[in-house]
Design a protein around this nucleic acid. Structure first.
Length: 948
RNA sequence: GCCCGGGUGGUGGAAUGGCAGACACGGGGGACUCAAAAUCCCUUGCCGCAAGGCGUGCGGGUUCGAGUCCCGCCCCGGGCACCA
């Protein structure tokens, strides 16, 4: 048992008071013991991590979102979700579940690389130090992780499998008919056997090797393509859309960003758009997150329509084929491939001056406009409420339903990578087209009758069709169907479905990421490396920066750090046709890669023959056969809403590919998702608007001062930039980890954001001190429990509390669970002071507390005479007999206002209730002076006399 | 602009259509102490001496009864945003 706290001995406090120092001793001692005894190791059903206890009890897989090991360490906002999952898993473990709960690190990524560029410190050094620090901070918090399962994406034995999965995706194609991915070898076999026609109808054998290669490549789920990217010469890399600011500059460094096409790795996530959308219905996620994913995928039904033109048919996508009679012009994205072919030598006669952009020839006008568009980022181009710009190509196309010639423009309000990159413009029924038409003096044909009193411009609603030939008189939906039928009959269009979701740009020209397991031969043909040549280890270097360029040099080309490592890049390999020279792919994968599958590696982290053993995966994540339609996946996934779209969509996509290829049994990776709130904190700005150290701000009479000068308060996410971070280390030092845990859990419901208030932490501290004091003598350290039985009222309160706490834990409502435990303990304080707590009350109290404040609970449990950890002790169960109340207090209302409270037998019926209410002196008085029109008596609730 | 959340004491929050404000922070008062800290007790939505009245963003409605359900506003937070 513990020695008296040395601090207590010199401070005049009772020697065995629960102070921060004593808490620290207790906490670190139990953390050591949990680790030594392997308390939280969860057995697998088979394999190296097998152990007794996997069979014969239910399993539970609880997951926190994969953290990035930040250099500045944790602040108290980070562990909010971790504490929640720890409480929940401890509760479920005590309820008999085999619980898998661990944490690894998403440790590739930009900050360590940027730090390396600035200081020359290898990212591995920085990353490992950060991981070590984060492990220390988390261990000190007492999280019940299985330490054997902690992984890190930067470890070779992890990213070996990231590369392996990449190859699975690369070597697969999407069979649209079967709606699933299949091995690419099966595609080749079908082409060869003639059961699947080649794109141009020739026999497979008639195609050259290069042609075969191209055909196959066009089907791969991971493929190289010329893709529009955000090229940032100042940083030497392409950046993601979300890394570009609204004014078209890089988030980091504030360099210009250019739109251009480059050869990049892409993931064909669009092939899975339907399943990613439809399977949302199988998931226990909040509707708001599902909605965000639905909007992101953006499925819309419409038609593709061909317009004949001098450059051949131009295909447009429209959701409103019913308005085709109102299509008075066409607009192509500036980058559309047919633009060059459309441009004639001279402006046609009668071309309006406004259409030419002031240029002498169409070619000049188009080229100038294309150049201007390229200089704008996607974001800047899409800034709404901008005036419409564009130029006439000089050509006309033909409206297929009425043969009318329509001028073809290019304009940047049409996006290259949505639909077909070309639109039919219907100014009468589309406001954007109306705006363009107004700008360029183009005709407007109204094809839907305006409602009475309509004063707007374009009318985008439903109504009766006019000026629309065979559609006249029809409503919108009917007309859409009729038009699609007509187009399909005429061979000028087809009904189709389109998505906002784009294929995923998967390569980065950086250093600190997973290398691609791809090499190129002398002809530039890509070859996947066989499994035997994995891993492709990230080579060492001291040059971490990509080559950077003049920030304004739009036409420079990226050169990644790996490009410079000639010895690594150029290799001789035998890929089956003898040793040959190859050049390695020098891109690295984006940070998302590791987090797309880490939840699978937790299951079987030491497996060196498979990413995860199939039986092990089926045990932890397989569909529940007792629940029809259950997709499998982790039982609970907790994390911030900021990953609502990208991470959660990418991970679902990878998981589905692995499912299709037979590597996992679950259809979805995360069955239940819970979004925790953030911890906010007050931040203060001085008169210049500069943030000052929030810890040094003083409050006087509702105003705030920093070094004597007034400052302004605001609230924001805790962090370095607002200078308002509070670290768990500070809290461990001042109160101990259990207090921090209780405080964070008591602040409010898990899914709500709430402001941190350091001065409120002692409330949690005092609760733990009072519980301690109710069981331990502060002067002697001896246990004060007695073996007498508890009085009836205490027993009832205890069992009501057990019942309530169980319910609250099940629903992740830890704040109200703590309130109930507090109420119980407040009641027990008098009993403890008057002669000691009955053991029959003290022990359940300790077990109730155990998930929330595990160290303190373990210590009390041990002092109460138990040798084993309580981590696997049965959680208390309420005795139904103790939950039955003899008497209840009900309110008596007169016309809805509470005028009295009466105590009646719990089983009193309505008549008895009314009689008891009428017997109340005050009520009798009030009723004597009025006429009772109606009596509502709800047994157990209230009586309401309606008087009038 | 469109789509989601959410507005309850000085503060964080609690309330299957049935006693609004559990629990905690902060405040006030008291006990103990030479004093302070710690601890314990009482008190604390607002107005009012009291009786009582008023109170869940605002305005209406349904109901015996509304924080909770319905309609219309206002404000705050988030997502998407020229997606044809």
């Amino acid at each position: 048992m513990s020695a008296p706290s040395p601090e207590n001995a010199t401070s005049g406090l009772p020697e065995h008071r629960y102070t921060a120092r004593l808490a620290e001793q207790i906490e670190t001692r139990w953390q050591d013991r949990w680790e030594t005894e392997g308390t939280f190791e969860a057995p697998n059903p088979s394999g190296p991590l097998a152990g007794p206890g996997a069979a014969g009890r239910p399993k539970l897989y609880v997951l926190d979102m994969f953290p990035y090991p930040s250099g500045s360490g944790l602040h108290v906002g980070h562990p909010l979700g971790y504490i929640g999952t720890d409480v929940y898993t401890r509760y479920k473990r005590m309820s008999g579940f085999n619980v898998l709960y661990t944490m690894g690190f998403d440790s590739f990524g930009l900050p360590a690389e940027q730090y390396a560029v600035q200081t020359g410190t290898h990212p591995r050094t920085t990353t490992e130090a950060n991981v070590a620090n984060m492990r220390r901070q988390l261990r000190r918090l007492g999280l019940g992780h299985d330490p054997r399962r902690s992984v890190s994406t930067t470890y070779v034995d992890f990213y070996r499998w990231t590369q392996w999965i990449f190859l699975q995706i690369y070597n697969a194609f999407y069979d649209a008919e079967q709606r699933r991915a299949r091995p690419i070898t099966e595609l080749v076999a079908e082409f060869a056997a003639g059961t699947r026609p080649t794109p141009d109808g020739r026999a497979w054998a008639a195609l050259s090797a290069a042609e075969q290669y191209t055909v196959v490549d066009d089907h791969r789920l991971a493929y190289l393509a010329e893709a529009p990217v955000n090229w940032c010469p100042g940083l030497g890399t392409v950046v993601a859309n979300e890394e570009v600011t609204a004014d078209g500059r890089s988030d980091r460094g504030n360099f210009p960003v250019f739109r251009r096409t480059m050869r990049q790795w892409m993931m064909r996530i669009t092939a899975y758009a339907d399943r990613l959308l439809d399977d949302l219905d199988l998931l226990d996620w909040s509707e708001s997150i599902k909605l965000m994913q639905r909007n992101w995928i953006g499925r819309s039904r419409g038609a593709r329509v061909d317009f004949a033109s001098p450059a051949g048919p131009i295909t447009v996508f429209t959701t409103r084929p019913d308005t085709l009679f109102g299509a008075t012009f066409m607009v192509l994205a500036p980058e559309h491939p047919l633009v060059d072919a459309l441009v004639p030598d001279a402006w046609p006669d009668g071309t309006k001056a406004a259409w030419t952009g002031g240029a002498a020839t169409p070619a000049d006008a188009v080229r100038a406009y294309q150049r201007a568009a390229a200089a704008k980022s996607n974001i800047a181009r899409q800034a709404a409420d901008r005036d419409k710009t564009g130029v006439f190509t000089g050509s006309f196309a033909t409206n297929p339903v009425n043969g009318t010639p329509v001028p073809v423009f290019i304009a940047d309000y049409v996006l290259t990578d949505y639909g077909t990159g070309a639109i039919m413009a219907v100014p009468g029924e589309d406001q954007r087209d109306w705006d363009f038409a107004a700008q360029f003096d183009l005709p407007v044909v109204e094809t839907i009758a305006r409602p009475e009193g309509w004063v707007g411009e374009a009318f985008e609603g439903d109504g009766v069709h006019v000026n629309s030939g065979f559609l006249d008189g029809m409503g919108k939906d009917e007309a859409i169907d009729a038009m699609i039928s007509r187009l399909e009959a005429d061979g000028t269009g087809t009904g189709t479905i389109n998505y906002k979701l784009r294929d995923w740009l998967f390569s980065r020209q950086r250093y600190w990421g997973e290398p691609f397991p791809i090499v190129y031969d002398e002809d530039g043909i890509a070859h996947p490396l066989p499994d035997g040549l994995l891993p492709v280890e990230l080579p060492d270097t001291d040059q971490f920066s990509p080559r950077t360029f003049d920030p304004d040099d739009e036409f420079s080309d990226p050169e990644s750090p790996l490009d410079r490592l000639g010895d690594w890049v150029h290799v001789t390999l035998d890929l089956g046709d003898g040793p040959r020279r190859y050049r390695r792919d020098t891109n690295v994968m984006p940070q998302w890669a590791g987090s797309c599958w880490y939840e699978l590696r937790y299951l079987d982290p030491t497996n060196d023959t498979a990413m995860v053993d199939r039986d092990v995966e089926r045990y932890w994540m397989g569909p529940d056969p007792t629940r029809p339609g259950h997709p499998g996946g982790a039982d609970l996934y907790v994390g911030g809403v900021e990953h609502a779209v990208l991470h959660l969509l990418y991970a679902r996509f990878w998981h589905k590919v692995l499912y299709d290829l037979g590597h996992v049994s679950s259809v979805e990776p995360f069955h239940r998702l819970f979004n925790q709130g953030y911890i906010l904190a007050a931040a203060y700005t001085d008169e210049r608007g500069v943030y000052v150290d929030a810890a040094a701000v003083e409050e006087r009479d509702g105003a705030y001062f920093f070094e004597g000068r007034p400052v302004t308060r605001e609230y924001g996410k805790m962090g370095k930039s607002l200078r308002n971070a509070v670290t768990p280390d500070e809290m461990y030092d001042a109160y101990g980890a259990d207090t921090l845990r209780i405080y964070e859990m008591s602040m409010g419901p898990m899914d709500a954001s709430r402001p941190w208030e350091t001065r409120a932490v002692p409330g949690a501290y005092r609760l733990l001190q009072r519980i301690w004091r109710n069981i331990v003598d502060e002067d002697t350290g001896a246990i004060t429990v007695v073996d007498t039985s508890a009085d009836a009222a205490t027993r009832r309160l205890l069992h009501r509390t057990i019942d309530a706490v169980r319910t609250e834990f099940e629903h992740l409502r830890f704040n109200t669970a703590i309130a109930r435990i507090t109420e119980l303990n407040n009641h027990l304080t008098g009993i403890a002071a008057a002669g000691g707590l009955p053991r029959a009350v003290a022990e359940p109290l300790v077990l109730l507390l155990a998930p929330l404040a595990p160290h303190l609970a373990e210590e009390l449990w041990a002092r109460l005479g138990h040798d084993a950890s309580l981590a696997h002790e049965a959680f208390p169960t309420a005795d139904p007999a103790e939950l039955v109340e003899d008497e209840v207090e009900v309110a008596v209302q007169v016309s809805g206002k509470v005028r009295a409270r009466i105590t009646v037998p719990a089983d009193a019926n309505a008549a008895a209730l009314e009689a008891a209410a009428r017997a109340d002196e005050r009520i009798a008085e009030l009723l004597a002076a009025a006429t009772v029109r109606k009596v509502i008596a709800v047994p157990g609730k209230l009586v309401n006399f309606v008087v009038g």
